[in-house]
């Protein structure tokens, strides 16, 4: 249960960083923390008590659930794409406005 609470703290932390920070790079870092917390959640739910890694040894052993791992692999790819696109946009903004602080961007 503790680990779920810790994960929830990570989730809220990411969300707070995205909302409160004005620097766009820090916002992107916040977004990454936010997304990672959900990935960790998927890993947590796949754990089966006393479960072995999901590699077939014999039919009687208990295995952890491999499906969430596969799902989250896709989500990680999506997250990388989002991050790189966001960084590319930040470069473009920096070239146009010479700043990446959001409150300064709103004034111009």
């Amino acid at each position: 249960m503790t680990i779920y609470l810790l994960n929830m703290a990570l989730f809220s932390l990411g969300l707070i960083i995205i909302i409160r920070e004005s620097n766009l790079i820090k916002k992107i870092i916040g977004l990454n923390i936010f997304q990672s917390s959900v990935f960790i959640f998927y890993l947590l739910i796949s754990k089966v008590e006393n479960g072995l890694p999901p590699v077939f040894i014999d039919a009687t052993s208990v295995y952890s659930n491999p499906l969430p791992h596969v799902l989250i692999l896709t989500a990680i790819v999506v997250s990388i794409a989002t991050t790189s696109l966001a960084l590319a946009l930040v470069i473009k903004i920096k070239n146009i406005y010479k700043t990446i602080e959001e409150d300064e961007l709103d004034e111009t």
Binding site: L31, F34, V38, F41, T82, A86, L89, K92, I93
Partner: peptide
């Protein structure tokens, strides 16, 4: 327009992560 795009990226990604967690 890049600012509009990145702001939509942040809010859109938050929405998508909420949906991902809901699916979980």
């Amino acid at each position: 327009s890049p600012i509009a795009a990145i702001q939509y990226l942040f809010i859109g990604s938050i929405g998508a992560v909420f949906i991902l967690l809901a699916i979980g």
